[in-house]
Amino acid sequence: MPLLDAQNVSKAFGRFRAVADADFAVDQGEIIGLIGPNGAGKSTLFNCLAGDMVPNAGRIIFDGADVTRASAEAHARVGIGRTFQVPTTFEDMSVLDNVMVGAFLRHPHRDDAREQARRIVELTGLKPDQRARSLGTPGRKRLEIARVLATDPRLLLLDESLAGLTPGELQDAIALVRRLHEMGITIVIVEHIMEVIMTLTKRVVVFNQGHVIASGTPEEVVADERVIEAYLGRTGTPERGSKP
């Protein structure tokens, strides 16, 4: 049984169908990439998977339970964690306090939550007393990951969490995602940087105009005619490491 099973999920805004019959599954322990051109519907699908939006049709099953209409809070409680495309840190709070908000989900007592938060902050290489406001983009993205990690997620949805990083920061971030995967967390990652997808994932699902147009290993999808057409509008192979 897959950990996450999205069955014919559709989401429309008025007459515009952002996601149309998306159908894919994620097994326990997998790390899969979700790619597609801008406006393909990846973030909308992410919002549906994370409980931020309710799909118009289809079902989302997590660990055998139907979470299609469950709230974002309920998604976090069952173990689905997410980050946002634009980092949404709690600006006036310290790094540790940000992470504690997540930690309180499984550790209602302050001392336990602080202990859990300290462990996570150390793992992610952040400074606990630094104010979130003073962090740069890489720090904010790292803090978002730390915060969601504190909720003990079983499935982590990373929405372009590695975008906008320098090559050095990118390698650090890739190493961090690997560590999370080694900890047993199943990961779905939306990313435009092909280097990340090729390095981290074993399976890639490609989205275009709301539809899943291809699925397979990274090597298979980059050679897929439909994928090339979706990205470039003509035949050709996207270069490894390039931004499609």
Binding site: A76, V101, F104, V148
Partner: peptide
């Protein structure tokens, strides 16, 4: 200094992010 205090400040800073962390907003 307790969970409720952290939750209210998180809600003020960003409701959507707070929800995603399981805060009963």
């Amino acid at each position: 200094s307790r969970r409720f205090g952290y939750y209210v400040r998180a809600i003020k800073a960003g409701e959507r992010a707070a929800k995603s962390l399981g805060v009963p907003v």
